[in-house]
Write a protein that binds this DNA or RNA. Sequence first.
RNA 1: GCGCCUGUAGCUCAAUCGGAUAGAGCAACGGAUUUCUAAUCCGUAGGUUAGGUGUUCGAUUCACCUCAGGCGCGCCA
Length: 524
Amino acid sequence: MIRDDIRTILLDLFPNEDIAVDYVPRDKEGDYYTNLAFRVASREGKDPWDTAQRIASRIGSPIFKQISVYRPAFINFTLSEGYLYQQLTADTTLDIGRGRRYLIEFVSANPTGPINIVSARAAAVGDSLIRLLRKTGYAADAEYYVNDMGRQTDLLAESVYQRTLELKGGRAEIPEGGYHGEYIKEVAREVIEKGLEDDEDIKNYAVEYFIRNHQDVLRNFGVAFDVWTRESDIYKGGYVERALSAITGKGLTYIEDGAVFFRTTEYGDDKDRVIITSDKRNTYLLPDIAYHLNKMERNAYDQLIDIWGPDHQGHIKGMLGGMQALGYDADTLRILIVQEVKIKEHGKILSMSKRAGTFASLSELLERVPRDVIRFFFLMRSSSQHLEFDIDLALKQSDENPVYYVQYAHARINSIIERAAQSGIEVPRSANLSMLKEDEELTLIKDIIRFEETLHDAAVNLEPYMVTYYMIDLARDFHAFYQKHRVVCDERQLCESRLYLIQRTAARIKEGLDLLGVSCPEKM
RNA sequence: GCGCCUGUAGCUCAAUCGGAUAGAGCAACGGAUUUCUAAUCCGUAGGUUAGGUGUUCGAUUCACCUCAGGCGCGCCA
C-alpha cells in the first residue's frame, strides 16, 4: 500500500513517531499528506511551520514527484508518474488476516416468522464482511444460529394450533405474546394437511417450516452460510451444563426470589442477569453463552463476531461477561449492532408493523426491489447508523440510482473494449503507460491503486460501506475520464495504454461489486 | 428515572488515531451530445457540524452539561 510505503519512508527519519498518512483533499495539491510535523514540533516545542520545512527537505525518494509544505504544517506528497505506472501494473494480493480464523454469526432470526428488514440488512452486511475478510487473507466462516427450542417456539406452536382451530371453523385464541401474523395461517393450513395433532409434532413442523423459509429467502438474497447451528444441539452436546458450571464455579451466581442470577455486573453490566428463572427455565443468555463456548471449542477461532439488531444492545455486556466467565478475553468476541432500517415511499416513512402489510419482511422487499439494489443500498451506510431505504429511488433505473451508476461504468468499459476489438485493437497484457498524462487518467490510476487501502480500512473497521463509497468514487472518475478522452483513437500506443487502464478499472469494479454481493453486468 | 445509539447543506449521508477552507449524492438552477452506451459529464448555489462549557498548536471527532429523536430496562428472544 502506498500509505505504508510513505509511512516507512517517514519512520526511517523518525523511528518512534506516531505518523498519520492520509489523502489530501481533492482541491489541494498533492496525493497524500502527513501530520508528522505537528507531532515533532509539539514534542520539541518548536514552530510547526519551520519544523515541516525542515522535515520536508530531508525526505528524498523516487516515489515522489513533489513534496510541499502547507500551512499550518502539512507536508504533502505528490506521487511520481513512474511510481504510479509501476503500482498500477503490479499484481499484489492483500494479506491482512494472515490466515487468522474469524467466525461471523449473523441474522440468526428466530424460526417463528419471516426474516424482517433489520435482519435483511444484517444479512447484507454480514455476507459482505465474510467476502471482504476472505479477500484480505482471513479464514472467515459464516454462521447462523437457530433458536429451535424454548418459550418462543412454544408460543409459535400454540399460535399455529389456535389457527388450525380457526381454519376448522372454531375460534383462535392466540396466547399472550404469541404470533398474530397472517403467515401463521399458512403454516396452520399445512399442519392440517399433514394431519398433525400432537403439540410436539406441530412445533417441530412449524420450526422446520421457518428454517426452510429462512434458508430459501437468504439463498435468493445471495447470502450463504457455512454452518447452521441449532440451540437444541448445544443442549445435546452438554454445553449448557458446562457453561453453567463454569459460571457457578467462579462464584458468579446467586439465587434471589428463586431465580439464578449471573453476576454480570462483575464485567461492567449495569445489572445482574437472570439465567435460570424461578420456574426452572433457562433464559436465552445461558444457552447463548454455551453456544459461544461451542464456537470456540469447535475451531479455536481467533475472533468471534456477532451481528445483532438494535433491540439487543442491552445484552452486550451480559454476553461479554459470559465470554470472560468462560475464561476468554472480552475482546475475543466483538458484537456489532446493525441499526434499524426505515422504509420510505412517496416521501413517507412506512410503518413496519406486520399488520399494516407493508415491508415487514425480506421476501416482500425482494418481490418489489431488485436484489442488487437492496444489497447496495444496505451497504451504503455505516452499519452502526440508522438507514433510510427510499423505495422510489431504489426503483429508479436512472442516474439517480447509484447502483446503476456503478454498474453502468462497467458496462461502458466493456462496450469500449468490444469496440476496440472490432477495430483490431486488443487490450495489451502489459502496456507502456507513459502516454497516460492527463489529469483524468492519473486520477483513475490513483483510484485503482487505492483499492487496497480501502479494503484494508473496510476489513479492519468491519465496515463494508467503505467499499461502496469507493465504488461510487471510482465510477465517477471513470465517467469523467470517458467524457473527456477517447479510448479508441488513431494513436495506437495511446489507445492501448488507455485500454489497459480501463480494463484495470473494470476489474476493480467487478472485484468491488463482488464484495458487495452485487452483480456486474457486461451490458445495460 | 437509568443505560446504549443518534443529531452535519432543503433531503439522504461521508469525513480513518484529534488535522487543511467540513465533502458527496439527490432535489434546485445554468450549461455540454456530428464522437467508444446521455443509466453520462461540467458549472452555480446551499453550513453557527442541535446548543453551551472545557481540554490544545488544532475539535464534527475527546470530556462535562442542556435540548431533541430512537432502542432497551432483571426470571421474553
